[in-house]
Design a protein around this nucleic acid. Structure first.
Lengths: 335, 335
DNA sequence: CTGTTAGCGCTTTCAA
DNA sequence: TTGAAAGCGCTAACAG
């Protein structure tokens, strides 16, 4: 008890005992047991970050924002990669609740409400990160996928592109859906009709990007531009385009969601819509910590952060020569 | 107690009680409290990963290897960024010991033994990752920095380079030291004398890379090649070289330690020595878990994983035109 | 087969 | 100003 008082600077302690205790602490290398403390207080000062793949530079940056903010407030972060697997997510959720994390930052593998309600039912606050889930009363922080997709599509339209393939991630993921929405809206705003045959659903992986690109390039007339729904997909696109003997942007323009920060430092090539990844991690963490501290209003908060179009070299005007026929066909259809 | 038996499948339980308990668990959404369990067993099934910056793709990949391996064995990972600050590292160590992590994977900010001994004194197993510390009895897993640096330097020598600037990270970090060693050995093996004026120490950051490159390029005769001690330094080099109106590899060759996986997928440009980052995380974690399970021999294990030279476009032969004078000066000195 | 006791290390409350 | 009791939720050991 006396030791406890010394460590926490609480209650009355004589200078002499304090010194004796401090001496003993130093001599023994004593460290207080946070487990016991947590057991008493029902607070662990630990939060969890569940994401799909920390290897994706977007999430890496988000994670950095989370960790910085958390540690600033004395919280530790556990991190978990689900690889988009709902089973892995459920498994992690179980472990984390058992370990009594104070809160969870969740990039949900799918847009079903189970994960969020599982946590909420057990009084574990959640903040949805990057992806939202409809009809669940829960805080969420995300980038403006729809707006960003609109910017990107608009950019291509302004360059004269009319046949723009959209290579999405999983159908069940909100970012995919929202980006498709923004794409459609941009086309509609320009008075163009979306061709459903040019919208492809898959995974947020280079492999999927490659596969979908092959399908897209096989369409007649061939699309003059490709909109990859994220950076990993774009990598696959680049490979498949090269494999087909085509060049970016000469033969096909390419734009994508999410920057590849390091790659862009070496060679600013990809035209992208960049999300404020670090800020997203930061905001989500602050929201979570505020809620833990009872500083948030009861109703769920939703934060949508703006995106930014960065035009680089992978997008260019529709070319006259190879695209002539298509362009013509396109014009006929438009008129 | 009965509930405990049901959950852990231990001891005798009648089918009927078991079912009643399971029903109650489901009804109440009961989740066992791992904190209390850990308090009893003095085991948390949690390890910590302390690294300098998860934003560096090398460490991101290491982290992924760590998390995959840990979760496979039922362990959760806490992660901490020190940004090379010894103070931050010490602070984290304190918190982690209080939280009773079962073990720590540590990328030490500096090569002093305090951090490792702090943990060892408190019976927390440590595995040093990426960087080692002399004269401490502790497990460690790293890439072959010296061998890799030898490969890289050799490669440049074979291309005819004689004045090769080496841009290191901090002097106090073993990877920096080992890479300088490999560089010197390669020069010595080729019968060349190392020019200490061409070895620069700084930080593992783009800013430092830029700064050191300016210093290096100011040397007369100008170096014909630059060896960046890591990928972030190389990014700075590229910027400073461009800023100086020079081109890579035409005017200056550039090689570096650690690949930039995503960048290389987009545009395979940098000649690098690649370390098996994922495997490093995996091995280090396995070593740690083995030790936790008492499966390791008493004496500390050291694992040095081989590196691989990947020759790409940033390194080329010494050019005749601009480098003529230097080359001549070089030959005179050599003869 | 089921339940009681005790203790992991901490802190709140109360007593000395 | 210091210390004793009790309880957070768990399980080993023992009792019934």
């Amino acid at each position: 008890m006396t030791v406890s008082r010394v460590i926490n600077n609480s209650g009355y302690i004589s200078q002499e005992t304090r010194e004796r205790v401090e001496q003993a602490i130093a001599d023994l290398g004593y460290v207080p047991n946070a487990l016991a403390r947590s057991l008493r207080f029902k607070k662990t000062k630990t939060i969890a970050l569940i994401l799909t793949d920390i290897t994706n530079p977007f999430f890496t940056t988000v994670a950095r924002g989370v960790e910085d903010t958390a540690s600033e407030h004395g919280f530790t972060v556990m991190f978990c990669n689900t690889d988009e697997s709902q089973d892995d997510e459920t498994e992690y959720l179980n472990v984390l609740v058992q370990k009594q994390v104070d809160g969870v930052l969740l990039v949900p593998a799918s847009c079903t409400p189970e994960s969020a309600t599982f946590l909420l039912d057990r009084n574990v606050p959640v903040v949805l990160l990057d992806r939202h889930i409809p009809d669940v009363e829960v805080d969420s922080v995300r980038g403006d996928s729809e707006g960003g997709a609109h910017l990107l599509t608009n950019h291509l339209i302004a360059l004269g592109h009319r046949r723009i393939a959209l290579l999405c991630g999983p159908r069940t993921v909100s970012t995919s859906q929202d980006r498709a929405l923004g794409y459609r809206r941009a086309l509609a705003d320009a008075g163009l009709e979306a061709d459903d045959g040019l919208i492809f659903w898959g995974q947020y992986t280079p492999q999927s990007g490659e596969h979908l690109t092959r399908l897209a390039l096989a369409r007649q007339p061939r699309p003059t531009a490709i909109f990859a729904a994220n950076n990993f997909v774009a990598i696959g696109v680049l490979h498949a385009v090269r494999e087909a003997g085509l060049r970016v942007p000469d033969d096909v323009s390419l734009v994508t969601f999410d920057d590849l920060p390091v790659a862009s430092l070496i060679d600013p090539f990809l035209t992208v819509v960049e999300q404020p990844a670090y800020a997203m991690g930061e905001r989500a963490t602050r929201l979570l910590l505020d809620r833990l501290a009872g500083r948030s209003p009861a109703e769920p908060q939703t934060v949508v952060l703006p995106t930014q179009l960065i035009v680089r070299k992978s997008s260019g005007p529709v070319h006259a020569a190879p695209a002539a026929l298509q362009d013509q066909g396109q014009r006929e259809r438009e008129s």
